[in-house]
Design a protein around this nucleic acid. Sequence first.
DNA 1: TCCAATGTTTCGCC
DNA 2: GGGCGAAACATTGG
Length: 238
Amino acid sequence: MEGPSIVIATEELKPFEKQKILSSNRENFIGMRYIGSRSWGKHLLLTFSKINLRIHFLMFGSYRIDNPRENRIPKLELRFKQGIVYFYSCAIKEIPDGFEEDYDWTIDTMSEEFSKPRAKKVMLSKPKSKVCDLLMDQTIFAGVGNIIKNEVLYLQKLHPDTRIEILTPKEISDLIKVTIKYCHQFYEWKKMNVLKRNWKIFRKKKCPVCLGPIIKRPTGKLQRISHFCLKCQPLNYV
DNA sequence: TCCAATGTTTCGCC
DNA sequence: GGGCGAAACATTGG
């Protein structure tokens, strides 16, 4: 689950704010109140009256409200007066009061505080790194996942293996700008249930522009799968 | 039916 | 101590 989806989760949990937990599969939550949530990158940060949680959905995690998954045991289940929230296959960690101070909000791609100059500075300090790795770097672009990476590189006509050192400062600024814009676009599309139909390259077979084949292979240090069109995203150097 | 994959952390080795 | 790769974890849509 990528950053924009976590923002949507915080919104879907809004109706339960200030509500008391009537029952839970975790005894200690019973009787507590859910205070609210916020997101940082791919972290869903939940505040309760006596505890704070960080939920990370990793690759397979999900949450449901009111309609549980069949034959699945939730990692956490919270029943309120007007609904039940279920969290599946996620990493749940308790975090201390005042955790907000531990998070750098200028790194969170969905935050208004995101600092493009900071991202640029960090990228320029890693000239040998490849764009595919830096876009996925959660200490630069918290919340960007593999879908956003692929779509942004396609929009910018950048080959995933492009090294930072061959980009002009303007190209780096544009890459950052488009990444942040796409994160918000992803959020809008997901809310409207039209996200998948708007993918241009991710899990596609043909390039929507030149109709050429889309290459699908692991790239960079991270070796995460990249989808790209060699004709539209050429690698212009060795 | 099989298997890659919207991801991160930890561990051991050099 | 840093960097790296492997492994662990865990699920399901295509």
